[in-house]
């Protein structure tokens, strides 16, 4: 009986708890790290724990966390979306421009933002899933195309705060029970997608596709449709992030969101999403965004120059993937040992 590899403790079908433990560990680790950074900084500068400062922490992380939701869905399928920053910029400007010149109603600002993102996500999804072009190339190209279109529309102008309705910017600066609206909205979205990624069949398919694309095809998973949907959702959320960006900053030129793409990927990877697909959670990605932002603000609060923040973010990203690697190597080795020890004939 060489196949009956007995796990030392008899396998109990306690699937849920096992899975939760596995899923939790990474998120708990990051959460603990966030708390640690927070406490250390607070010890140094008590102002860091003030409500206003915490609000800033949450607000600052929100947009990257929101972009991270879509990015996670895409990366889990073994793809990448580099166009999120440009999409955010275009969406924000289009909405701002419509406020300024067409005086559209406040609610429609969000709808239009989402529509802009939806359009770009659809283009991405079509070229990647239907024409089967590598996503890195497509979304890199779209990064330029969208940013360029943005610049054409902007034409050197800036939308100023006085053009944006107050009701719209309220989302960016008002809070509910002390928690900024922006953070509440993003948290709800993260929670929804976090649940969906765990419990909806079509989303489990995303993990299967990223884990083994060929097998996914054979298992009858409509890989093309799923990947297409992932890019559409990533675009859609980027568009929404654009509207929220505008409500937060209340002004926009042609550079909104530039460079975000790499920040988002960094946050997602720090949050435990495997860059080659197959594993990782939306909640982890969001926590990754919060961690990077907390470090950022902590540097400012500790009066260490904020010039340090980028270097630390980079070092942290490298440390995160190196730690993952060490962990998986150790697991593999112990698995091998156990298999060697418990193999019976």
């Amino acid at each position: 009986m060489t196949t009956a590899v007995q796990q030392p403790p008899a396998p109990t079908p306690a699937a849920e708890s096992r899975w939760l433990v596995a899923a939790r560990s990474r998120e708990l680790g990051i959460a603990a790290l966030i708390v640690l950074v927070f406490l250390v900084t607070t010890a140094y500068n008590h102002d860091f724990a003030r409500p206003h400062s915490i609000q800033q922490l949450l607000t600052g992380a929100s947009l990257i966390a929101l972009l991270g939701v879509g990015e996670t869905m895409v990366i889990v399928t073994r793809n990448v979306d580099l166009s999120v920053g440009s999409t955010l910029g275009l969406s924000a400007y289009v909405v701002g421009d419509l406020f300024k010149h067409q005086h559209i109603p406040v609610w429609s600002g969000f709808v239009i933002g989402v529509l802009v993102g939806l359009l770009i996500g659809t283009v991405n999804g079509f070229v990647i899933a239907v024409l089967r072009v590598p996503s890195l190339v497509v979304t890199l190209a779209m990064l330029y195309v969208v940013r360029g279109i943005d610049s054409l529309i902007v034409n050197g102008q800036t939308i100023d705060p006085d053009a944006i309705p107050n009701a719209f910017t309220a989302v960016g600066y008002k809070d509910v029970l002390g928690i900024p609206w922006l953070a509440v909205i993003v948290a709800l979205i993260v929670a929804f997608f976090g649940y969906a990624m765990r419990s909806f069949r079509s989303n489990r398919d995303l993990y299967a596709i990223g884990s083994n694309p060929a097998a996914a095809e054979l298992a009858g998973i409509p890989a093309g449709r799923r990947v297409f949907t992932a890019f559409v959702i990533s675009g859609l959320l980027s568009g929404l992030a654009g509207a929220l960006f505008l409500s937060l900053h209340a002004q926009i030129d042609n550079s909104g969101g530039s460079g975000y793409e790499l920040n988002v990927v960094a946050a997602v990877v720090v949050g435990g999403v495997a860059i080659f697909g197959g594993s990782g959670t939306v909640v982890g990605a969001a926590l990754g965004a919060v961690l990077l932002n907390t470090i950022d603000q902590a540097l400012v609060a500790s009066r260490i120059s904020s010039f340090w923040s980028e270097a630390i973010a980079g070092g942290l990203l490298i440390a995160a993937i190196a730690a993952d690697r060490a962990l998986s190597l150790r697991t593999a080795r112990s698995l091998r040992r156990r298999e060697g020890a418990h193999r019976e004939l």
């Binding site: 299967a208 884990s211 197959g278």
Partner: peptide, 10 residues
Amino acid sequence: SLFPDLSVAE
């Protein structure tokens, strides 16, 4: 052709 990241049951 299995999915290494998914559980055996999945």
